[in-house]
């Protein structure tokens, strides 16, 4: 994978959805193919259901760990509202991969705000949008908690990296007793019928 410029992937979701594990596998894979990688993760209070954002940058040499506005090549969103929140970070020709899951934030729960029609809006603004039901896929794979690995599989499908390297890295990262579920979950995401051309 020859690279001259820095590439940017933004992973967004809600605390507890497993974004951090997904980004750990991703960044390890990137390191294995010999690239410089920087990851920025602000997780001060994420354990308590707040927004979680992981920024992954990779290339021959990366300085800042932060993705500038409008520079994300791919956004992987674990939740619809978070996809909408981070949309301004996406490049014009960038790809946004969205898990069709709704998690109401506190202002919506108490009736102080409405949950917006996120997907319609995103589709009206961006060309490369792909929405999947990762929760259903994870349940089918055998564990609802594997949503993160389903989505990682979906992301992997849109990156030009050897399939076996992902499997190997998942094996090194997740506990042995959950390996089979996670490998199935990864394949489910990877083999999603639709996909957008590789970047």
């Amino acid at each position: 994978m020859p690279m001259n410029e820095t590439k940017n992937i933004l992973i967004v979701g809600v605390g507890g959805q497993g974004t951090i594990l997904a980004s750990r596998v991703l960044s390890t894979v990137l390191q294995k193919i010999g690239l410089d990688v920087k990851v920025s993760e602000i997780h001060g209070m994420s354990q308590r259901g707040g927004s979680v954002v992981t920024q992954v940058r990779y290339g021959q040499s990366v300085s800042s760990p932060i993705i500038p506005k409008g520079q994300a090549d791919i956004i992987l969103a674990f939740e619809k509202l978070e996809a909408l929140r981070w949309l301004p970070t996406l490049k014009k020709e960038g790809i946004i991969l969205i898990n069709d899951q709704r998690i109401d934030p506190m202002p919506v729960i108490i009736g102080a705000a409405e949950y917006p029609e996120a997907l319609d809006y995103i589709r009206s603004k961006v060309k490369n949008v792909l929405v999947i039901n990762a929760l259903a896929a994870a349940q089918e794979a055998g564990n609802a908690k594997a949503v993160n690995i389903v989505l990682l599989g979906l992301l992997a499908r849109h990156m030009n990296i050897d399939h076996s390297l992902w499997l190997e890295t998942i094996e090194e990262t997740v506990p042995a007793k959950f390996l089979q579920v996670n490998l199935k979950a990864f394949e489910a995401g990877y083999n999603t019928a639709e996909n957008i051309a590789n970047i």
């Binding site: 354990q47 308590r48 259901g49 409008g70 301004p88 014009k92 934030p105 919506v108 809006y121």
Partner: peptide, 24 residues
């Protein structure tokens, strides 16, 4: 120049509710 290409903020069009941390 690294000029942002996609500068329009979703906020301008839609009200996006904040997602503050909450007690477990």
């Amino acid at each position: 120049k690294n000029e942002p290409e996609n500068t329009e903020s979703s906020d301008n069009f839609l009200h996006i509710p904040v997602r503050p941390p909450v007690m477990c």
